[in-house]
């Protein structure tokens, strides 16, 4: 017993230490989010939150589920692999509307749209069809000769 005779201050200090540790555990329990560490050193719920952000491009499958006539026309031509929203823009607002006819997409202007891809430039891959808009029938918009969904002239491009 003589060993612990003057050791009161040590026990008091140890008690303080244990108390501080318990306070730390309590605080930690409160401030660390529940899903932290679920998959790794991060908040697991963050993944679900990011997955819930709204979609703006509906995807060509969604378009084709209604506009199958356009999809069939496209399949036959050189634009078969160009997705609808590449030209028509993001249209989930139209596709997901209760009444899609109420949200009417803007028809792209072929005079501007076609040139974005098809303006001739030495930087583009050689096999890609390119024209100089200043010399290739300047004036009328591309759409007056080429049908954008199947643009080849041999395919009866004229509308």
């Amino acid at each position: 017993m003589s060993v612990f005779k003057d050791a009161g201050h040590l026990f008091r200090f140890a008690g303080l230490f244990v108390l501080a540790f318990l306070v730390f555990l309590g605080l930690r329990h409160y401030v660390v989010p529940k899903s932290f560490g679920q998959y790794g050193h991060y908040r697991g719920n963050a993944i679900g939150e990011i997955a819930q952000r709204p979609v703006k491009f509906a995807g060509h499958e969604t378009c084709e589920s209604c506009h199958s006539d356009v999809a069939d026309k496209k399949k036959a031509g050189k634009h078969a692999h160009v997705n609808c929203e590449a030209c028509h823009g993001a249209l989930a607002s139209h596709a997901n509307a209760d009444d899609p006819t109420a949200v009417k997409p803007v028809l792209p202007d072929t005079a501007v749209l076609c040139a974005q891809c098809h303006t001739a430039s030495a930087a583009k891959p050689k096999g890609f069809p390119q024209v100089d808009p200043a010399s290739h029938y300047p004036g009328p918009p591309c759409g007056s000769c080429h049908q954008p969904h199947n643009p080849g002239m041999e395919a009866g491009g004229a509308k």
């Binding site: 993944i47 990011i50 997955a51 819930q52 952000r53 709204p54 979609v55 703006k56 491009f57 995807g59 060509h60 692999h81 160009v82 997705n83 929203e85 590449a86 030209c87 993001a90 891809c117 890609f128």
Partner: peptide
């Protein structure tokens, strides 16, 4: 870039892939 995580988890492709005209 989130690789359009909100799209690929729903079975869609990313917005950039959807809009790329040449694949």
């Amino acid at each position: 870039c989130t690789l359009c995580y909100h799209r690929i988890t729903k079975g869609l492709t990313t917005a950039c892939c959807e809009a790329c005209p040449t694949g």
